[in-house]
Amino acid sequence: MSVIIPYIDKPNPVTGVTNAKLGIWLFLASEVMLFGALFSTLIILRSSATDWPAHGSDVLNVPLATLNTVFLITSSVTIVLSWASLKMKNLMKFKLYMGLTVLLSFGFLIIKYFEYSSKFHHEHYPSTSTFYAVYFTMTGLHGLHVIGGIITNLYLMGPGSKMWKTEPERFTGRIECAGLYWHFVDLVWIFLFPALYLL
């Protein structure tokens, strides 16, 4: 007899969710605490400083960041469309929308790269001031989350999609979880953008 773990593809009738969905929600709760701590850091440092060293709207590239915001919001839409395509049993459309999501995320990272390198070019490093320290640390950690999302999404689009043939419901569930994670990454950016670039 092999080990059987229930509720992998179908939701538990009592709780109404699959294991993976409950798991991803719990994981996101802990992520909220992680970024919550970082935002608190920003608030505490900024409110206790007599002279906040720099304002994002003066020193950061707001148009580029706005473009990035558009990229991420669009990618949140495309990942929902990819999930909806699976619901309509259309694997090709799923791959198309997932591909778009990954492309948009790459676009985000490329813009981030230009932003970072222009800062380094002007000799602005994390050690320059607490503003840059917060800026690089928070956008850097967010960037790592984007990279993590890209790797997961690429896997689900490529080798991971084999599961569609054997366990379509479980695979759709996985895409839903990836989507939830991606919405979270998007949401963090929506908080980061005004906190760092506009205020």
Binding site: A49, T50, D51, S129
Partner: peptide, 9 residues
């Protein structure tokens, strides 16, 4: 280095 100060708590 350039000095910033914390408000006295």
């Amino acid at each position: 280095a350039k000095i910033q100060t914390i408000k006295e708590s």
